[in-house]
Design a protein around this nucleic acid. Structure first.
Lengths: 200, 200, 200, 200
DNA sequence: AATGAATGAGCGTTCATTCAT
DNA sequence: GATGAATGAACGCTCATTCAT
C-alpha cells in the first residue's frame, strides 16, 4: 500500500512545510517535489493529482490528530472532563506543529468546494467524537436536555476553530493552550453569571 | 468619489452574483464585467485590481450589514436582548440574500492571506459591536465578570459563523432564523444543566 | 467574423510555415505565435485550441484549392478534359506552395482520428467534384457504364495523392506538373495495351 | 539474434493490439509492456526505443505480408493474373487481421517523418514485386509500352491503399475482398469505355 | 535476463491587466 | 470616461527512458 512507503509521508511533510511557508497558491507541485527531494513526476506515483496531495495531507494529519484526541478523552471519567481534554488536546497538538496549524486554519480553506467537501468528510469523525461526549454529558445529567445536537457541535467546534484561527492570524504569538480552560468554561457555562458568582 | 458612481455598485453586485453562481475560482474579471454590462477595462477605472473588487464588495456589503445590526441592537434595553437581536439580525440578513451568504461564508474564504487580512479589518467594526454588548452585559451584572473579552468575542462570532456556514453548505435547506434563539441560549447559558432544570 | 480579420490569416500562414519547417510534433503553439508576430494568448482569440488551428488551416487552404479546381474544370468541355484539368490544377497548386504541400501530404496525416475525420469532411467537397466529372463522362459515353463510383473516386484521388506524396518525399526534386498528362492517361486507359497500339 | 526470442514477437503483437485499440497517441510503452506481460524495462532489452518497436512491427508484419503475396503471385501465369492475385491477396490479408489493418492504414501514419521514411524502406520490397509484374506485363505485350514505371507503381499502390483506408475508416463494414476484381479492372482498363462495350 | 521505481524535460492554455483608440 | 483586443507569465501533468537491484 502506497501510504506506507516512505516517500508518501515524505511528500506530505514537504507539502505541509511548503504550503505553510509560501501559501496555498504559491505552492507549486515542483516546489513540493523539490522540498521532498524527489522528482516532479514521482509525486504522481503516489498521488492522483495536486488536490490529492492536499486531501491525503488532511486525512493523514487529521487522522493522527483525532486518534490522539480519542485516546486522551476516553481515559477521562466525566463528559465535562472529556470536553476539557478534547479542547486542551486540540490546542496542544496544533501548538506543537506550527506549520500544520497554518495549513489547516488558513491555507486549506482556500481550496475549492470539491476539496472542502472531502475535507469535511474527514472532519465527520471528529464531530462524532464531540457528539458522543455531548451525549454522555446529557446522560450523566451534566448537560441540559433538549439540546440541539447540531448546534452544540457547531458551538464547540466553531469556538475552538475560531480561537485557533485567531491565534494563527496573530502569528501564534501567545500560548493558545493556556486558553483551553477558559474556552471550556465558556462552552459549559456560557456568558451568564452563574450561581456561585451570584451568591458571592 | 468613485464609490458613489452607479457603475461602482453595478460592478460589485455583478461580482456577488457571479461569484455565488460560479464559485470564486471561476469568477474571471471578464465574467464580472459582462454581468455588470461594462467592458473589461472599465473595471479598472473603478477598482485597482481584482482583489480590490472583493475587498470593496466586502466593505460595501458588510458596512450595510453591520449598520443594520447596530440600528436593531441599540433600540434594545438589556445586553441579553441586544445579543439576541444581533444573532437574529445576523441570520436574517444572510437568509435574505442567498448569494451574499454563499460569497461570505464559502467563496471569499478561498482568497489568499492578504485579502483575508483586509477582510478581517472590515470585520473589526462588527467585533466592536459585540464587545460593547458584552461590556454592557457585564456592567448590568448579567454576564460574568472576568471574562476574557477576546475569547467571548470568538465564541459569539465563531458560533454564529459556524452555524451560517453549515446552513449554507446544507444548501440553505432549512430556516436558519429559527435557530437564533437556541444559539443565543447556548451562548448565554452554555451546555450546563441550569438551576431551573436542576430544581425541577 | 473572425475569419476576415487579418490576424486569422496571419496565424494560419505562420502555422503552415512552422509545420512545414519543423514537422507537426515540433510545432508548438508558441512557435506559431512567434512566427505570426503575435502573443501566445492571441492565438486563442482566433482559434479554440491547437487542433482548431489545423482544421481551420485545412479548411482555408483546401477551400481555395477546391475553388480554383472548380473554376478551371467548369470551363472545359468534355469530362476527359475536365479530368485532365483537375489533375493538372491539383499538381500545379501544390507545386506552387511547397510548404502547403508538405503540410497536407505529410504533417497533417500525423493528426489523430478526430482531426482526420474533420479533414475528411473538408475533402468531401473535392470528392464531389470528382464524382460529377465521372458522372458526366459516363453520360457523354466516354467512360464505362457500371463503374463503382466509390472505387473510381478512390482511384482518381488515391493516385493523385500518392503521386504528390511521393514527390514531396523526394523533396520535390522534379516537376510534378509534368506528370499530369501521364497520370491522366493511366486513369483513363489503365495499363492495358489499347487498340491503336495493338493494331500497329 | 533477438528477433527469434519469444518476447520479441510477444511485444510486437502486444503493440499491434494496443495501438489498434487505443490509437497511436494513447499507446504508451507501459501499456504495450503490460499487454505483453513484461516489465517496462524489458522492452528496452529488445528494442532501441519506442520508434524501434513500430519499425520492427512493420518489418515483421509486412515481411510476412509480402512473402505471402510473392508466393501467391509467382504461381500465376500472366501479369494480368498476377496483378489480380496481388490485389486479392493484399485485401485478403488485411481483411483477415483487423487490428493490423487499423495500425497500418491509420495509426502508423501518425508517426513522424523519420519513422515514415523507415516504413517506406520496408515498402520498397513490395513496390519491387509490383514493378516486376508490370515489367512482365509489358514484355508479354499485355501492358502498354512507354509506361512511367514510377507512376504505374503509384497508381497500383495508391489505389489499393486508398481502397483499404476507406474500408478501415468505414469501420470495415463491408467485404473488401469483393472489390479486388473491380479494382483490378480499373487499373488494367482505366475509366475509358473499352472496345467490347463500344462494339455492343 | 528482468524488473519497475524514479526521473525531468516539455507544452497547451488561462486570465488579470494594459493601452491605443 | 469607456472600450475590448492584445498581452505573456505561469503551471500541472505525462511518459519515454534509465538503472540499481
Amino acid at each position: 500500500m502506497k501510504k506506507n512507503k516512505p516517500k508518501f509521508k515524505q511528500i506530505i511533510d514537504a507539502a505541509v512545510e511548503v504550503i505553510a511557508e509560501n501559501g496555498y497558491h504559491s505552492s507549486q507541485v515542483s516546489k513540493i517535489a523539490k522540498k521532498a527531494g524527489v522528482a516532479d513526476g514521482t509525486i504522481y506515483l503516489y498521488f492522483k493529482n495536486k488536490e490529492d496531495i492536499l486531501v491525503s495531507l488532511f486525512q493523514e494529519k487529521m487522522g493522527q490528530f483525532i486518534e490522539k484526541i480519542e485516546q486522551e478523552t476516553t481515559s477521562r471519567q466525566s463528559a465535562d472532563e472529556k470536553l476539557h481534554t478534547l479542547i486542551h488536546t486540540h490546542f496542544e497538538q496544533l501548538a506543537a506543529d506550527h506549520h500544520l496549524a497554518i495549513v489547516t486554519q488558513l491555507e486549506l480553506r482556500q481550496s475549492n468546494k470539491d476539496l472542502r467537501q472531502k475535507i469535511n468528510n474527514v472532519l465527520k469523525r471528529y464531530l462524532n467524537v464531540i457528539d458522543q461526549i455531548v451525549e454522555e454529558g446529557v446522560e450523566e445529567g451534566l448537560f441540559r436536555n433538549g439540546l440541539d445536537r447540531r448546534l452544540v457541535r457547531q458551538m464547540i467546534f466553531g469556538m475552538m476553530d475560531e480561537t485557533v484561527t485567531n491565534w494563527v492570524m496573530k502569528d501564534q504569538r501567545y500560548n493558545i493552550v493556556d486558553q483551553a480552560s477558559e474556552v471550556h468554561s465558556l462552552i459549559i457555562y456560557g456568558l451568564a453569571r452563574n450561581r456561585e458568582e451570584e451568591e458571592r
